[in-house]
């Protein structure tokens, strides 16, 4: 029961979706099934929030090291959730002024919009900006032209890095008949022919891999949904 029903569910929904792709009359089945999938994806965010609370509360109650930060997580979570769910500061929608709850949850002047703009936005974007520093440090410490493969990689990286800046303009003087030697053209041709060829092979490889994995799931050989319960 605990493993048969889930396997049946996965197989049946998979077969229905594949049939719906080939039989247009059954297209609405596919729409309904994928729509449920989309709704479940929404529920997954609630699950994620619930899991976060659970883990942080455990950290706090057992006074594990760093429990103070767990408290910061919980408080910021609670504030954001409250102002968002209660739509604090959100004006009603244009055509429904008589329904105070009808406005958009992320209205610019709302509390949720304010936190998005001034807390979520700078924090997440600066986290990614940090990577610029680490990639520089890695370039200095780790990128060694030890063999021909590494030389090809670094050589291409040099050409693309320089060709994508104003430095490429220094080669503008090369006559038109030899325009393929201009740095920006070298970059364009590397991307259009060599990179495209290699990435197309990777894309085809991934497609075969995905198809094989999907078939294993649909045939009930792989059952990742049983996992840890």
């Amino acid at each position: 029961m605990k493993s048969t029903v889930p396997t049946l569910i996965a197989t049946i929904v998979g077969v229905v979706l594949i049939v719906a792709f080939f039989v247009p009359a059954t297209q609405s089945w596919s729409e309904t099934a994928v729509d449920w999938f989309n709704i479940l994806a929404g529920v997954a965010f609630i699950l994620g929030g619930g899991n976060l609370i659970k883990v942080q509360l455990e950290t706090i109650s057992s006074r594990r090291p760093g429990w103070g930060y767990a408290l910061v997580i919980l408080v910021s979570f609670a504030i954001m959730l409250t102002v968002g769910l209660l739509k604090i500061g959100v004006p009603p929608a244009e055509q429904y002024p008589n329904h105070p709850w009808s406005g958009e949850y992320d209205a610019p002047a709302s509390a949720f919009g304010w936190i998005f703009e001034n807390v979520y936005n700078p924090l997440t974007s600066t986290m990614f900006a940090l990577l610029a520093f680490y990639v520089a440090s890695a370039a200095f410490r780790a990128f060694r032209a030890k063999n021909i493969e590494a030389m090809l990689l670094l050589g291409t990286a040099f050409i693309v890095l320089l060709g994508n800046t104003a430095i490429a303009r220094l080669t503008d003087g090369i006559p038109d008949s030899l325009s393929f030697l201009r740095l920006d053209q070298v970059v364009a041709n590397t991307m259009s022919y060599i990179t495209t060829g290699a990435f197309r092979a990777i894309t085809i490889g991934i497609a075969i891999g995905v198809a094989a994995t999907a078939l294993r799931v649909l045939l009930g050989i792989d059952r990742p949904y049983l996992g840890r319960t």
Binding site: F140, A145, L154, A157, F158, L162, T165
Partner: peptide
């Protein structure tokens, strides 16, 4: 933004060269 891009790319290339 292409201004900072120029100087930072030059720095990256120099870092790899000096590192090697």
């Amino acid at each position: 933004r292409m201004g900072p891009q120029l100087t930072a790319h030059l720095l990256m290339v120099s870092l790899i060269v000096v590192g090697n």
